[in-house]
Amino acid sequence: MQRVNIGIVGAGAISRSHMISLSRLPGVGLNVFDPDTPRARALADEFNAVRADSLDALAAGCDMVWVCSPPFAHRAALRAAIRAGRAVFCEKPLAADTADAAAIARAVTRSGTRFYMGHSGRWTEVFMLMHRLVQRGEIGEPMRVWSRRMGYLDPAQSPAWRLDDRLSGGAVVELGVHEIDFIRWIGGDWTRVFARGQDLLQPGYQDTMIAMGELAGGAVAHLELSWSCPRYLFQRGVEGRDGSLLVDDQRITQVELHRPGRKPRVFKTREDWQDPRTQENFSLRNQAKAVLRDYRGGAAYPVRIEDGLAAVRVAAAMRRSAHTGRTATLSTKGAS
């Protein structure tokens, strides 16, 4: 098996989650860089990885750059990776705003960089199951795709960049792209959105948002997000002409299929969303396996930079609509 040397940018929480999975996969070498040297060193020690002194040094010493830094720092990481001619995996969101995201997409396309977009929701077993049931026609043509994700973000416990719209893109970019991408995966491109937001945790940071949209396939999208809600709440659903699918359990291990006049069916996943013992996130594991499979010449990795760019664009349109009070229209053209 071809050995792949991976250079992880960032040594925060999500880097650690990725490293749990990557360190358990065969034929993977780990390197890490973070401007916060003690933090980088701690993570490198934990996973027996090599710590790099700079972005360029990291890129030079690996086969693939694995971008897990905060959204505002993605562009710099991508620049270093492209300069070194490395393949890139990039965590969602592609960037904090559309300008950055579009610049990244342009640079990636122009340089012919092998790019793997990280939208881990595409690799969550329960949502893959949901997607498969829709594709199989179990509920007919989707009419309504919706998602509700709410929880509490303690400002005191969260890094400063997360609560700064310019650095994280705000809740709708940072948290919302998961839901936006899920809805797009099921129902097609977003064409129009309207949204309303609230800033409750601190002024200027829209932590709560309701958005509705129109999808190219003809369905309606409905999204509710909040970082100001006690107790985690996560639901996703698709209503089709002939039936509906619902995921509504905090461990995201089952899909309910309801069809009028027929008994409900429940499809269970084989495993939880994470390993309770090792805290390995199985979505990230599945995603990493798919990236490496593609990198080694196996099955093509399906999530492309266009998907990442589209999600950021939709999130930005929601922010625009929440700001102006008007419907925002999206062009459905690709990355360029």
Binding site: H222, E239, G240, S244, E256, H258
Partner: peptide, 11 residues
Amino acid sequence: SLLVTANHRAK
């Protein structure tokens, strides 16, 4: 948000 539908397919 309000949703009122005549085409509910859930339980």
